Simulated scan of single mutants.
Amino acid sequence: MLPAPTPAPPAAPTANPAEAVLTIANVSLAFGENHVLQDFSLTLLRGENIVVMGKSGAGKSVLIKCVIGLLQTDSGTITVLGQDVAALDHNGLDRLRTKLGFLFQSNALYDSMTVRDNLLFPLRRQWLTHTPAQEAELVKQALEDVGLADTAAKMPAELSGGMRKRIALARTLILRPEIILYDEPTTGLDPITGREIDHLIREVQKKYNTSALIISHDLACVRLTADRVALLSEGRCYAEDTYAGMQANADPQVHDFFV
């Protein structure tokens, strides 16, 4: 009698390979003699999480700023949800940004505002309008999504670091973004809280089918959140693969990140 087969590990969320939500094609950007990005290319699929790794100063934050139109590239194209970012005027960029969420490394919560007002701030600064009842429901849902339903009246100073990170994510989720950009989401958190944030990133991906571009140096975060990993080195996408594939890569420039 044959032994029972070993159960397969849970599959990561899959994406439609034909549906790219973000295409970075041959992008270059220099500041004087400092060539930060050099012919960088990467494609993010709907429902997919990509973690971008690289040494400090490699250009990861610059890449995100180019994606949201805060920096203009010297060459190449960035297409977000079918729109060429460089071709959009101010209003066009504002409308596109309502479909993008951004989780800042520092959380960027307003200390003088309650949690509720922090969440309402981006909601009221975009071109769509909501009734007070709709606003209340969106705040309620966003806080429930991050497991902090009872914090609406609290001030940021009353919350722990992990709770502030969750509130920052709730503020991102309230606009129901199609793409979320995470900048070092676990930096400054203890390992247990960091893992909670990693699992929350996956829960958000699963519930809303969001796509995410994640900047991280935290290997546990990379392992738990990435469907694919891209290594930014010498201004270009030096390598990309699954976490396991990158870990097994014998190239010293790749291998050194995973030891």
Rank of each mutant, 00 (worst) to 15 (best):
R116V: 05
F104S: 08
D198A: 13
L175A: 10
L81D: 12
D227T: 07
H255F: 13
K99G: 07
I192P: 10
S41C: 06
V146W: 00
A58G: 13
T43H: 10
Y182A: 12
I78R: 02
R176H: 12
A58M: 02
L189F: 13
K206N: 11
T193E: 04
V229L: 08
T6K: 14
D39F: 00
G32C: 03
H35W: 03
V27S: 06
E178S: 11
Y182D: 14
L175G: 10
D183S: 09
A239P: 05
E196Y: 12
K65C: 09
A86R: 11
D84V: 10
G57P: 03
T225H: 04
F102R: 03
L100S: 07
G92Y: 08
H199E: 14
S233N: 13
T131F: 00
V80S: 04
K65I: 11
L120M: 09
Q83M: 07
H90E: 12
V52P: 00
D117V: 03
T242D: 09
T242K: 05
D145L: 05
G69W: 15
K99L: 10
T79C: 09
G101H: 01
L44D: 08
T77I: 04
N249S: 04
D111C: 02
L159I: 01
D150C: 04
K55Q: 15
D256G: 05
N249C: 14
M163P: 00
I197Y: 11
G92P: 01
R176L: 09
L138G: 06
A220S: 14
D251I: 02
R176E: 14
G245V: 09
R116A: 13
P122S: 05
N209D: 15
R46H: 12
I214P: 01
L81Y: 07
E203V: 08
A157M: 00
S216E: 02
E19W: 04
L88N: 06
Q205A: 09
I180L: 08
S233T: 12
A250P: 01
R116Q: 13
S61H: 12
